[in-house]
Computed example of a mutant assay.
Amino acid sequence: MSTQVVVPCFSTPMKGLFKSKPRTPADLVHHLRHLLPLTAPNPDPRTSKRRQKTCDEVRKVIHEMRTVLYGDERLEPAEEACVKLTLEFFKDDTFRMLIVCLPNLDPGTRQDVTHVIANLQKQRVNGRSVASDYLERNTDLLTMLLPGCDDSELALSYGAILRDCIRHQVAAKFVLESGHIKTFFKYIQDPSFDIASDATSTFKELLTRHKSTVAEFLSKNYDWFFKEYNSLLESPNYISRRNAVMLLGTMLLDRSNTSVMVQYVSSLDNMRICMNLLRDSNKSIQLEAFHVFKLFAANRTKPQEIVKVLVANKSKLIQFFSDFTFEKADEQFESDKAKVVKEIVILELKYQACSTLKRNVKKSPGEASHLAASVLC
């Protein structure tokens, strides 16, 4: 008589019974801090497998952090968990360790790191930005993120993190006032398109986000800054010229920079650079240059040297603007162009009247005539 042995099947009810308990936000940060120093490359081949396992574990931890902050296809992020992760992350030097060890991680993990840091930078706890407070105490970290890395993939990760940092005014102010912004003039023209493009994005963020800080910086550093900036406008690199003239228009048209704009458009050298850009072979550069040139034409306090150049080139300018158009030109563009032409025509009439009055003053030098000439001219 045979006995049939029935083996109980636990596959369905027992599934997931022995799953590890999800790590808390604090556990994730503590575990990451423990792992990061172990990701450093080691020439000893016997440690390569161990290091690879560590890097794989780091990737998992970073992915878990990303899930906490962004949620997944099943769950939305929990506010309490985001707050706890933010506080734990910025409480000690996890941010510093992550930046230092970023070169040890693979590109996929680096990308997840930038997403995690981007979210943590935006988190607010009791109305305060924990990231801003941290950066105010650790401004030296910003220098580690500045352009200067020859590894384009790593440079892109650093650039993304830096742009998230300078969303905080304290960080942007540090980069501007410490003189590190000079670094960007080099890397904006880097032969590597990725590095140049990333540096340009960060440069624009620095010079447009925090209005009062930027206006103060430009006023204090006008001479050297625009000397360097004009070299970008005259760069043989088409992309550098295009990006530079676009950003210039954005800066000068911002109301916070009115005093800087008046100073810039009062320079004959600056106007000559702009007029050369109007003749650029690229249409988009021509259009952006026009948005800057119209400021020179609209300036009510034009220096006499600028007036003379505009009057001397009146015919050429009017002919140029009569042919100056684009496929997608709108009413605003046509209106601005008409105003520029009108200003140049009126300027010649004023200049001729001024010249006539000055000649009369020389023939009959009276106090009233001198006064009239000074007011008109």
Score class of each variant (00 low, 15 high):
101 C>M: 04
249 G>N: 04
167 R>H: 12
189 Q>G: 11
56 D>K: 09
51 R>E: 01
58 V>E: 00
50 R>L: 08
205 E>A: 10
56 D>S: 11
264 Y>K: 03
315 S>M: 09
55 C>D: 06
169 Q>G: 04
106 D>N: 08
297 A>P: 02
210 H>V: 02
163 R>P: 05
173 K>G: 08
96 R>L: 06
80 E>Y: 14
276 N>E: 14
107 P>W: 03
323 D>A: 14
199 A>I: 01
350 K>I: 03
18 F>Y: 08
288 E>H: 11
232 L>C: 15
366 G>M: 05
257 N>I: 12
131 A>I: 02
310 L>E: 02
89 F>G: 02
333 F>K: 07
267 S>K: 05
158 Y>A: 00
204 K>R: 12
211 K>C: 06
130 V>D: 02
73 E>P: 07
57 E>F: 03
220 K>P: 05
249 G>D: 05
260 V>Y: 05
84 K>F: 07
210 H>D: 01
372 A>S: 15
84 K>D: 12
232 L>G: 07
31 H>I: 13
131 A>F: 04
300 R>C: 06
150 D>A: 09
75 L>Y: 11
363 K>N: 08
2 S>Q: 15
159 G>T: 11
258 T>A: 07
39 T>P: 02
146 L>I: 09
232 L>I: 08
361 V>M: 06
195 I>Y: 05
80 E>I: 15
22 P>R: 09
233 L>C: 10
138 N>K: 11
97 M>L: 13
16 G>C: 04
244 A>H: 02
123 Q>M: 11
82 C>P: 00
142 L>F: 00
39 T>F: 02
22 P>K: 08
348 E>N: 09
127 G>H: 10
200 T>L: 01
319 Q>S: 12
192 S>N: 14
76 E>F: 09
220 K>N: 13
224 W>P: 06
84 K>N: 12
65 M>S: 04
184 F>M: 01
98 L>D: 02
280 D>I: 07
143 T>G: 03
370 H>Q: 10
73 E>T: 15
191 P>Q: 05
8 P>V: 11
321 F>E: 04
219 S>V: 11
118 A>D: 00
22 P>I: 07
85 L>Y: 06
174 F>L: 04
377 C>K: 08
87 L>M: 10
304 Q>W: 11
277 L>N: 14
324 F>P: 03
8 P>A: 13
5 V>C: 09
277 L>F: 14
233 L>R: 06
356 T>E: 11
139 T>R: 15
27 D>P: 00
263 Q>G: 07
9 C>D: 15
211 K>W: 05
118 A>H: 01
36 L>E: 01
